[in-house]
């Protein structure tokens, strides 16, 4: 007997939650205990009084599982609202990455040139290294990081995705 694999879809969910102890553990742990995937998760408080946080989760699963994930999130007491940006329509996704490369001579010139094309900014430089700051969709960052690998990548830090609906309305 073999374990069967199912076809999955990628969805970006945003959750509005009470900013209290344990909320993040409750949500992340629910994903683990029910066997759901988390590709990335970001969290920061967003209200003036610091009472409310917004969490963006990128997850993956067959459509009925995505539906369950949303329902299970909504069932948690500190979760006020869950929006599936992928379902809801046009939206933007952005991620920020810090990318450190080391090199001299041609390698260094090439790194600069590529950074320019990808609109990455230099935020730290030494004679043999750069740290670039780049924002964009996850594909753009993936590609940029792959290119940097060719020219001396040392390490990468990524924030994970945040997303908002397009247009004038809030989600």
């Amino acid at each position: 007997m073999h374990i069967k694999q199912e076809l999955t879809e990628r969805h970006v969910l945003t959750l509005t939650v009470d900013n209290e102890a344990g909320t993040l553990a409750r949500i992340a742990g629910m994903f683990t205990s029910r066997g759901y995937n988390i590709d990335s998760l970001t969290v920061a408080d967003i209200s003036e009084d610091h009472a409310i946080s917004r969490i963006t989760i990128v997850t993956r699963g067959p459509p009925p599982v995505i539906d369950q994930i949303i329902a299970q999130c909504e069932r948690l007491i500190p979760v006020h609202k869950v929006t599936d940006l992928t379902e809801a329509g046009p939206h933007v996704e952005r991620e920020l990455a810090l990318v450190k490369v080391r090199g001299t001579g041609d390698q260094r010139v090439e790194a600069m040139r590529l950074a320019d094309i990808y609109r990455a900014r230099v935020i730290d430089a030494t004679v043999n290294s750069f740290i670039f700051e780049i924002t964009g969709g996850p594909d753009k960052i993936d590609t940029f990081v792959a290119l940097m690998r060719e020219v001396g990548l040392v390490e990468v830090g990524r924030t994970g995705i945040v997303g908002l609906m397009r247009g004038a309305e809030g989600s």
Binding site: P64, D67, Q68, A71, Q72, E74, R75
Partner: peptide, 11 residues
């Protein structure tokens, strides 16, 4: 009463 019970195993 629990929306997560709906469509969990049977559509």
């Amino acid at each position: 009463i629990d929306r997560s019970s709906i469509n969990k195993t049977i559509r």
